[in-house]
Design a protein around this nucleic acid. Structure first.
Lengths: 337, 337
DNA sequence: CTGAAAGCGCTAACAC
DNA sequence: GTGTTAGCGCTTTCAG
């Protein structure tokens, strides 16, 4: 059961290959009659053009690449899901690569994707320094940095306004009376980490709270594990913080686990807040105060930008920040006395 | 900055295109000297063969398709992650489609994937009846059904032994003294649902527990939402069950939420067990008793089988069941004296 | 051991 | 309005 080609259709209809091609791609210079006839038989026999031959010819693959951090993180899974949906909607298929934030992750992914000829790449696994990505942008290849961005202002960057979110979180904790506020975040080489640390400092400064660098713990990844280990380190200290700002919900879940295990209570002994607002955060047993934003909007903008870039216009730089929203639940605590 | 082609390399080295091609694919009939020279310059200038041209020529794309249910389900996300890893490891790239179990999901995904010319397809979103998939298998296209399978014994099917898992769960609940055991599962047209319902009945029968069909609730999907809604329905009844078997952890989380909200306690009033053992299930605030199995093993077998099939041998039928393991935590309760 | 040439399926000049 | 032809980058006969 071999696939039908244009040549087969040509033979069947009695026209030339070129005419058949024109009919199927509704080219202007063709008579309605032949066109209809050809389209009809094409349908009847279930002809499917080979995208790979067409792509070969046109230097187009109708594929877009998506480079992500890790599907284990439900937030990144949600982003991936959303991109998938948007891309399918636009008639593109998606090639996915996961980097786990390894140094070789992005360069290898880019190389492989270029080899199979994707038309554009959405990267949600961007680290602050990423030579391969910078080069890609420089050579005007269609790229969108989504969720995370390079340190440089270059290319299209569509990110949630993490600084704003953390600022809301810290301000909220201060308003509730917490003073000694710790933070557990991710590695320094990620945009998400950096902005969140900075926003934390900024919020404290604005409220004249002295900054204590010992209260800031940096993990290797945005993960349950990071929260678990670093919060454990905090609990080993003599004096405990009132509250811990976690740079994402997964970190917060891990931190909560340690606090629970230690027999302390949340938020009475230590308040916890997260970021991203996973499904589980709303669970009555968790009730994590967090920050959420419209992932659908992010993804839609990202895919739209990729398509625009594919069709020609690649801007030197464009930065879109999506404003998030505070979701107050139980773990942040209440006004003391 | 155009990409280099074989022709360019030929010009640079002074050999013909054919020789260059042979050198790069270490063909037997070529002298070591020329081969080395060509490979060297190829490396120096960073030549990358166009997989799309090669694929066009060879009818191979070096792509495999992966059709999944939904990344929102952390269990399916984990499966996807695992497949991605294995495939990358084998030098294949992965095209992902998510169906959300819509009736048109699989057929459309298959059609699109064939168009871009994937070499094989792993389907984790199989429904019991799936004409498009059955046809694909019949025409000897490389396919693996992973995690879920068709009702028919056809093609390669690599699934966890859900029946065994549910059997362990129900038996365990019975041993703990629970007698009135309800079940919340997924839609009837999924393998995962069907086997799990059957195993539930089977385990009850073996223990001479009368079967009450009213205790079996069927949701639309394996989701938090299903657990939430159906458990709510259960709580509205006059007499409550001792325990609820949920067909996956997400359903269990939803069910737990309702029970918590109703002010009942788990497991004292109602015990809950899940299936899949998500990361969150181990959290001290959840401590869901569940069943886990080696996803890595499943994925590895699936990818291995796809590659084998691509290289020739497509078996008519092959069924592999992975044996799962019971993970006992708090939500299943203890012996009622 | 190496080169010349054909051809995969498709589109786009270029003729007629 | 339609047919002929060339060529995308690669592998693989077939000669030499």
């Amino acid at each position: 059961m071999k696939r039908l080609t244009l040549k087969d259709l040509a033979k069947m209809t009695g026209f030339s290959v070129a005419t058949v091609s024109r009919a199927l791609n509704d080219h202007p210079r063709i008579s309605r009659k032949t066109k209809n006839k050809i389209i009809e038989t094409s349908k009847k026999v279930g002809y499917q053009p080979s995208l790979i031959a067409r792509g070969f010819r046109e230097k187009k693959s109708y594929l877009i690449g998506l480079i992500i951090y890790d599907l284990n993180n439900s937030y990144h899974a949600a982003a991936t899901r959303s991109i998938l949906e948007e891309a399918q909607h636009e008639g593109y298929q998606v090639l996915i690569r996961s980097t786990l934030d390894l140094p070789t992750g992005v360069p290898e992914a880019i190389e492989d994707m270029k080899r199979v000829g994707v038309d554009g790449i959405v990267v949600t696994a961007t680290r602050l320094e990423e030579k391969s990505l910078e080069n890609l942008i420089r050579e005007k290849f269609p790229v969108v940095q989504m969720m995370r961005r390079l340190a440089q202002n270059t290319g299209v960057q569509i990110v949630p306004d993490g600084a704003y979110g953390i600022h809301m979180l810290v301000t909220h904790l201060l308003r509730l009376g917490h003073r000694k506020i710790a933070m557990i975040g991710g590695p320094d080489n990620l945009y998400t980490s950096k902005t969140r640390y900075e926003a934390y400092y900024q919020a404290l400064r604005e409220n004249d709270i002295p900054i204590d660098k010992n209260l800031v713990l940096k993990g290797r990844a945005f993960s349950y594990d990071t929260g678990y280990k670093l919060c454990k380190a905090i609990l080993r200290r003599r004096s405990l913080p009132d509250a811990i700002v976690c740079a994402d919900d997964h970190i917060a879940f891990g931190a909560m686990q340690v606090i629970d295990e230690a027999g302390l209570s949340i938020p009475e002994d230590i308040a916890i807040v997260g970021f991203d607002d996973c499904e589980m955060s709303a669970h009555p047993r968790i009730q994590l105060t967090s920050v959420k934003y419209d992932m659908k909007q992010l993804s839609r903008l990202a895919v739209k930008s990729i398509l625009e870039q594919i069709d020609g216009g690649i801007p030197d730089h464009k930065l879109i920040k999506i404003v998030p929203q505070l979701v107050v639940r139980m773990t942040c605590g209440y006004l003391k006395e």
